Computed example of a mutant assay.
Amino acid sequence: MARWNVTAVNDPDAFDRYRAGLADWYDTSGFSDADASRFFTEKTICQFGDFVLTRGRSIGQTLTRGPEQIRRSGLDGVTLLLDFGGLEGDADGLTVSGRPGTVHIRHQARLSAARLAAVDVLTITMPREAAPPWLMEPHLHGASIDSCPAIGRILINHISVLASTAPTMGLEQGINSIRAALILAEKAFRNSGRLSSNQTKAVYRSIRAAATQHIDRHLTESQLGIVHLTNAIGVSRATLFRAFSESGGINRHITHQRLQRARSALLERIGRNPSVAEIAHTHGFVSEAHFSRLFKLAYGTPPGAVRPLRTLPEPDFSGDIRYDLLLDWMKGGPD
């Protein structure tokens, strides 16, 4: 991950360095005389395999990718751009515009220009070979969708939450979340309708995989819950609930996993150590009473009644050869 927050106040050359840094990607223009002194740029960049996700803010400007920038950058891929400030521009001869909260598609090897009143954008960028084929269809360069259709709102919300939580995501979580965004984007841009059954299953499968992985790593933490998960894996509450609906819900899944792990801890105890209260606390339950009630509902017996697995003494082969004793131990017979 890379991150910076530079202003003309703390770096008098920030404006010139910004324009020079972007020169191979974009020609920057449309600045006022006062912009150099009030200039700022904020950027967060996260890479997940072939995918690069960015969050950027800056002053208003025009960004143009002409033949020279396309040649110098050598980029041949596609960007999904969620713009929060509103833009007007051109995509290879097609006039484009979008109100705040619109997702745009831009092919990097084709001409484009955008005038932004203020740079406030999220982007997901990938090379051609990593992009799904539909996203590289020529007619989609310059396409956009806003929050009017339901699928547009879902896509925008998903990208927004993904970007806010990306800095804390692992590689697999990030890739799964971006792939889910691309499935939503396909439906939004190609059909503007409801997801097919297979597409829905694919989205929810990737969300469940990311959530389950995160749950397993943080299962013993008391703060693990809906808010924690939505922030960690980059989805809305509603999407998370739907992803686990067939398995009884996300809270039930977390509780089930905690109970299983706590039961293992009870079986591995030496005598009564650790105590039921200690096991409850270390496995994310709010109290011993809460743990005991849930445990009895799940297993039909209170946790205190669980007998630790008997640790069998090692056979002593220094005297008689007692295969009868060894066999008895293997069968679980008396000592």
Rank of each mutant, 00 (worst) to 15 (best):
P274Q: 09
G248S: 01
S275W: 03
A209W: 04
E278Y: 03
E221M: 07
T311S: 09
A238K: 08
V286T: 09
W329Y: 14
R261M: 07
G248W: 00
F241W: 09
Y323N: 09
P313S: 07
S196W: 11
G248A: 04
A243W: 01
P302G: 14
G234R: 05
S275T: 15
T220R: 01
F295Y: 14
L326P: 00
L297K: 15
P303N: 01
L240F: 05
I279C: 04
H290V: 13
A210W: 05
D324V: 06
D320Q: 15
I226P: 01
H281I: 06
N273Y: 11
P315F: 10
H218C: 08
P302C: 06
S247M: 03
L224S: 02
G319H: 13
R263N: 08
T311D: 10
V286P: 01
S206G: 14
G319A: 14
Y299R: 02
G300K: 08
W329V: 11
T311K: 01
I207D: 03
W329G: 14
P302I: 05
G300A: 11
L327N: 14
G248L: 03
A262T: 07
R258I: 05
T239V: 12
L309K: 13
I233H: 05
P274R: 00
L240K: 03
P303K: 00
G284Q: 00
H218F: 04
R269G: 11
H253G: 02
L327M: 13
G249I: 06
L309M: 09
S264Y: 08
Q257Y: 04
H290S: 15
V203C: 09
R258L: 03
W329I: 13
R208N: 02
L224R: 05
Q213G: 15
S275F: 04
A209V: 10
K296Q: 15
A211Q: 04
I321W: 08
R307Q: 12
T255I: 15
H256M: 07
R322V: 13
N198S: 14
L267V: 05
I254C: 01
F295T: 08
E268G: 12
K201I: 02
R310M: 09
G225H: 01
I250T: 08
S245Y: 03
S318I: 10
H290L: 02
R272P: 10
V306F: 01
I279V: 10
S236G: 13
T220M: 02
V227D: 08
I226Q: 07
T301C: 08
F244P: 06
V306Y: 00
E221H: 10
L326K: 13
V276N: 07
L294E: 15
Y204W: 06
H253W: 02
T212S: 12
S197N: 03
T255N: 06
I321E: 08
S196K: 11
P308A: 06
K201S: 08
S275Q: 07
R208D: 02
T200H: 00
T200W: 02
I270P: 02
S222W: 01
L267M: 10
A232I: 10
L312F: 07
P274N: 07
I207T: 07
S236R: 03
T311A: 11
L229S: 09
G284I: 00
S196P: 02
H256T: 15
D324Y: 01
E246M: 09
R310K: 09
S264M: 07
L266R: 07
F241M: 14
H214C: 04
F285H: 00
L326M: 15
H214T: 13
L229K: 07
